[in-house]
Write a protein that binds this DNA or RNA. Structure first.
Lengths: 185, 185, 185, 185
DNA sequence: CATGAATGAGCGTTCATTCAT
DNA sequence: TATGAATGAACGCTCATTCAT
């Protein structure tokens, strides 16, 4: 008996994400995903019950992963300014290093049939636990978590999605500075 | 002067947008759009060369329209704080009053095959012209237009997309206050 | 606008029935039916909602038709012996002249997912009305309708299905004689 | 002596027959049969060369078995009337006790691609040998074997397949009486 | 012997688009 | 202009069968 190959499962997910970056969530048919992954269409159904199961599983997984990427770059000992910078920079770097995942998650999050599979709020709870500590110590201004998420993640993603040409570093530094001014007391 | 034909074209666009809110950009086939609009599939091709032409035309049109909605709520005489409030509130109110258009534009903007039909930057040039005047007079802090757009539009849309349950008004007022503090000198 | 072509609908049904005679109800895929009928697979779905709808509609239609064929060969004025002969002969002739329909209906009638679309009892009510008159006049022995159908239709179909080689006429005449002896007083 | 393997082979056949009763001959895929039997799809191919081989082997086997069931209920010493009753009753009881086998065999017998694997005539040769003796002694009327099979087996199966609701016993007794009158001198 | 993984081909159905009226 | 009919290609998925363990 052949054993289940989790690398193959991974390859399928990555192929789908790559394809969706190129052709949009519309253009990613099971047949195309299979060809991109170098497997038979039927093989996909060994690892996922349906196309929607594949999409939602990957959406969920990558949603968490992108926040964990940021999580790994922050530590309790950081200064508040440093923390904000790490979060925003981490967010941005992730979009550059995982362009296809970023595009995929953004598309899924807007799609009414997929968005409810993942709660954006839950994904960043690790980061928020730390921020809450800073807020408790008066190192970061208090505000609702939703607005905190709104200003910490949305603008940098906007930047990542809409930046075209020219050096992005200054833009990013400016944004960091703005958010520091906004959130530091 | 609106001819009967213009109205039919409008009906098609609105039907598509309604459908995409319900079923996502994947679920909107030409046949379904036609049924929703109460016309024949062939009729759609009288007004648009292809499905992509329909999508991109609507995307472009509604993108501008959503900024014009905000535009109509601001005037040169406003105070800077008032201006920021009007923009953010206008943005939010639009998402509530045109839920389906908001969802549609958000989906299109993330889709690689559609996003390049519209430059988000161009759409808001009217608003930015005014802001530039305020900045020139030192009433609003200077920063790059991209970051300005990033903080003015992205967080409020994040709020609109991710808010679930509970009163939204306090959230929105808090966000306005945050952005006023951020952008006022 | 092209108008609906009922000849085409007929062609589809006939193609399916022909195919099922050759390859069995298993072997009749929509694509094969379409090829046999000389239309596109999609065209079938203009006239029928689904493959099952096509099957059940044809099953129902041909079930009635095969009894109507017999119906046309009987008249109130016939003698009782003559009536029985007409029914059995009619049944048999139909299976010869419409071999593919006979095979199709027999297969559908045995398939659990299709059989309940058609009540065999209802199909032959016209014939039974006449027989009831004969029974009322004591020209045909009384028995339950179910058993009447069982002896009038099942054996002749058995003959039609299982006869191989040799002249069938004597067999058929013998069967007619047997049933006359059975049913005449 | 039944080896463990023989039992597994049996399980596969029974699973298939059960499935075909529920979903028709169309709905019985190898994967479903395997699941129903609690084995792997590959295991089926250890015992049978192909799906068709499985179908035809089971068809042949169960065809004979259903006649053997009747065979066991008749003995040379019986009266002619008793013999006819035993055959018809035996036939009917079998359909009740082996509903799934009955449905399976009936479906196979009508399917052009399967029917030729089994000659219905051959299956009942044991019963016919006995009847021939009765006929030789003038205890049962002479007629061709095909018509004999037609009246002995087809009506009772028709009854079994088309009876719905109400007590079946009287129907069956009536049929037995009819066939006795038909076949006894 | 027995398995679950793997597959190319095919399934029923819908797609975006064009045709004929 | 506007239509429903028509279509080849593609859809998501399952098929019968084989492979590797």
């Amino acid at each position: 008996m052949r054993t289940r190959d989790y690398e193959k499962q991974q390859r399928i997910k990555e192929a789908m994400v790559r394809l969706i970056l190129r052709e949009g969530i519309n253009g990613a048919s099971v047949a195309k995903i299979a060809r991109e992954a170098g497997v038979s269409p039927a093989t996909i159904y060994i690892y996922y019950d349906s196309k929607e199961a594949l999409l939602s599983a990957a959406f969920r997984e990558y949603s968490y992963q992108s926040y964990q990427y940021v999580d790994r770059r922050i530590r309790p000992g950081m200064g508040a300014a440093e923390l904000i910078e790490a979060i925003v920079q981490g967010c941005y770097t992730y979009t550059v290093e995982h362009e296809e995942v970023f595009s995929f998650v953004e598309q899924c999050a807007r799609c009414p049939t997929l968005s409810e599979y993942v709660s954006q709020q839950e994904c960043c709870c690790g980061i928020f636990d730390l921020i809450h500590q800073y807020q408790a110590h008066g190192l970061i201004r208090r505000c609702s978590d939703l607005n905190l998420a709104a200003v910490l993640f949305a603008p940098v993603r906007f930047l990542a999605a809409n930046h075209k040409g020219g050096p992005v570093e200054p833009q990013l530094r400016e944004l960091v500075a703005m958010l520091q001014r906004l959130l530091l007391p």
